[in-house]
Design a protein around this nucleic acid. Structure first.
Lengths: 220, 220
DNA sequence: AGATTTATTTTGACTAATCAAAATAGACGC
DNA sequence: GCGTCTATTTTGATTAGTCAAAATAAATCT
């Protein structure tokens, strides 16, 4: 059985390789896991021996089929737990990530399935992140962000790709939740500012960095 | 923050001292935790240094006020999780214990409280075991049953929670009346059988369902 | 009381996961 | 092409929790 540390390594390799990158560099993995690089190297070699990932020295790592299976299962637990915490226990959007970080390693596959059924087999969590299916499919649609999309077109937020409580709280207070309707009214690259207008008519300025964390799709 | 191992040690000291015993002997603790006695000794000395329990060498251990607080919190998590799994996720009651064994170490106090509210502040879990209150009171109004109590300890029947004539007749014929002294000599969960030995020396087998209807308290 | 049995503690060793700091390999610039 | 910089790997130590087996203390039985 995979330990908590093993599950975390695999999960983070999966998350870091989501942006299309084939190989995840050691440095990125180490800092995602908040360990020093040497620790990541040691652990990665052990996981490679177990056949859970492939290690190309000085280049990076990628998941094997088996490692990916485990990582997807953990991610599925994480995102279903988040959904449960928000929809059933009515917890604050911004706080469920930390909680799920623990619970993802403690729930059995049976509880996972029952939770999934209870929630009506949702396909995305409260942040809009896709929930891997029971049989390991992860919908990987590529979305535009508020920083990159076409201006002055009606949009709908599909996903907020940031886990920090501060950011999520800010987003919530300003109605920047998955499902919200809005449009980009101005984009000032030199100043690094994006101005959006919500469906309610209210305007709001965001930094380019923040805007890049909010994924959108064309409305209708 | 207490580790999983620490939480387990404290929880088991609490459970083992519930039968009235002031000091929990090392051997009992070690076997409850499925570790060799030497391991328990080592760990117990560390916990004593942390002020979580008191260790009287060659005699046993007892919880300090702080240790008891932690142990009650873990037990509360365990029993509320069991209640949730049975009542909300409709899991089989025989399987929820293992599950709760993991989850009790992963849920935060906030989730705990919300779970408690969702379930309507129950005071006993599906096994009839009392759920410690949020502020550390363990109700003694709620009794264990022949299905849930510790084996091989002297018990006294306090109540038989069944109205049907057949059952009460059966109970009467076998001396299973309030006040009767007995102990559980064997419990075979897979077979769903509980064997009790009366003070008179006579043995008797009961179904788990029947045993769950007979509330008992530790003798003396 | 003296011998034996049983429970507990001690000692030494091991595993998983980690850090700090030194060594090394590649990439990059001029 | 050679030195510099940066990312990665190595090496040596540390911590939490564990086991096996020897040592010791206490209880029990003639």
């Amino acid at each position: 059985m995979a330990t908590i540390a093993v599950e975390n390594y695999l999960k983070h390799v999966l998350l870091l390789s989501e942006g299309g990158a084939d190989l995840v560099p050691m440095g990125a993995l180490a800092s995602a896991l908040a360990v020093v690089p040497g620790t990541a190297t040691t652990m990665v070699k052990a996981l490679a021996d177990e056949g859970l990932l492939e290690h190309l020295p000085r280049q990076g790592v990628r998941l094997t089929a088996e490692g990916r299976r485990v990582a997807l299962n953990v991610l599925r637990k994480h995102r279903l737990v988040e959904t449960f915490l928000v929809h059933v226990l009515k917890m604050d959007w911004s706080r469920v990530h930390e909680e799920a970080e623990q619970l993802e390693h403690a729930i059995s596959d049976e509880v996972l399935d029952r939770l999934d059924a209870l929630l009506g087999h949702p396909q995305s969590d409260p942040h809009g992140d896709p929930i891997p299916s029971a049989h390991g499919k992860l919908s990987s649609q590529v979305y535009a962000t508020l920083a990159t999309c076409v201006a002055d077109r009606p949009l709908r937020i599909v996903r907020v790709t940031e886990q920090s409580a501060e950011f999520l709280q800010f987003a919530e207070q300003n109605g920047l939740l998955p499902g919200a309707a809005l449009r980009v009214s101005d984009r000032n690259l030199p100043a690094g500012l994006v101005t959006v207008r919500r469906a309610t008519g209210r305007s709001l300025a965001l930094s380019l960095v923040a805007a890049g964390k909010i994924l959108v799709e064309p409305e209708r």
